[in-house]
């Protein structure tokens, strides 16, 4: 099965929030709701060995997607192209998927009273266009495609880097497909950061 996803090259990302805005515009995501969000991770470490980077987040297209396995109606499902999607017509609003997603990247559509999330812009990719966030990325940091196809944009970009420079969000058995490229040029990849010391910096939430 194809593993379509977004790959982000953090060496290139400037943290401009363009992807976040493009996603909202393209998908008509209401104010206060989001399918995509750029985090600022850090700063962490001791001067001069400090790390601070932008981290664009969205549905990570997990291979063992917990949101799909817990959904009681099949509203959260994987389509023929292997993409995890929500059939909003079937959603009963139990929010089980929102509890089960390890990253909290699902959104609650207040108007339609159902769960939703990044669709990888299937309405565009089905017409051989790029997802809005990928197309709009001014730094050329975002890529879309199938990890299993060596000729896809994502595979070609990943092939330029060694394994140690390729990261995923913390995997608790869900096997996220999205890859983040980050070399030592930017700093050290952080799995988790306690935000307490940096009250003005958005960081990963911390597990106590």
């Amino acid at each position: 099965m194809a593993r379509n996803c977004i790959v982000v090259n953090l060496d290139r990302c400037t943290g401009c929030f363009g992807c976040e805005v493009a996603c909202k515009m393209e998908n008509g995501v209401a104010l206060g709701e989001r399918w995509s969000k750029v985090f600022t991770v850090g700063p962490v470490g001791e001067y001069p060995d400090m790390t601070r980077y932008a981290l664009p987040t969205m549905c990570q297209q997990c291979e063992n997607a917990p949101c799909v396995s817990v959904c009681p109606t099949g509203a959260s499902y994987r389509d023929a192209n292997g993409v995890v999607l929500v059939d909003k017509e079937k959603c009963i609003g139990c929010k089980y998927c929102m509890m089960a997603c390890p990253y909290g990247v699902r959104s609650w559509n207040v108007a339609e009273k159902c769960a939703e999330k990044c669709t990888l812009c299937g309405h565009l990719t089905s017409q051989d266009k790029l997802p809005a966030c990928v197309k709009s990325c001014a730094a050329g940091a975002r890529f879309y495609g199938d990890l299993d196809d060596p000729n896809s944009d994502v595979s070609k970009e990943l092939a330029k880097y060694s394994e140690g420079d390729i990261h995923t969000l913390q995997d608790v058995g869900n096997a996220p497909a999205t890859r983040y490229i980050m070399t030592s040029m930017i700093g050290q990849w952080q799995d988790r950061i306690a935000p307490a010391d940096h009250p003005h910096t958005a960081a990963y939430p911390v597990a106590e």
Binding site: K37, P102, Y204
Partner: peptide, 11 residues
């Protein structure tokens, strides 16, 4: 305690 709650959406 969520592993991560990136969008901070309340349930």
């Amino acid at each position: 305690i969520a592993l991560m709650s990136l969008f901070g959406v309340g349930i």
